[in-house]
Amino acid sequence: MIESFIDIVLLTFLAIIALAITRIRHLFVTVILTGMFSLLSACLLVTMDAVDVAFTEAAVGAGISTLLFLSVLALTSTEELPGNSRVSCIAMFLVTITGAILIYGTLDIPRFGDTSAPVHNHIAERFINESLQETGVPNMVTSVLASYRGYDTLGETTVILTAGIGVLMLLGRGKRNTNKQKE
């Protein structure tokens, strides 16, 4: 009872914030609202007992992403240009159809916590029963992330490094030029 009440409150706030983000043109406010969205998502994940994911969401989504967005605002303008606010019938039709298809797609998804869901019956059983003996790590999330699914984590780390290299290549040159000017 109280859990579903908390879920309803959190999801309502999420919807309100998402709508506000689409309406507000002031980018500073938008960035802060994005941070709030992440923090509320982290709260939702805590109610689902996914503390590792919630921790990541709070640290990365609400924490450093907001910071990086804010520092990007220092490079650009803080006001979004007014877009074309005329509602196009074709666009509206396409968006409605896509949304309906997405909602139709969720109908086949197993309910939250359903023990007969395929994801709980395939390999999860082995992780739960044997990961402690096999890896000696009590936190199953860590043993799955780092050991059983080491390739995925390697890919994620590579993505982060690639993002850093991309930003360095696009914006890092200016610094080098100013250094030359100083010399």
């Binding site: 890896t135 780092a146 984590t153 993002a163 930003v167």
Partner: peptide, 24 residues
Amino acid sequence: GIFLIELGVGITVASVMLTLFYIF
């Protein structure tokens, strides 16, 4: 192994995040 790769992930993430902040 888990200790080493988590350390590697931590070093890369911290460095890239700080790099992004420095540049932005």
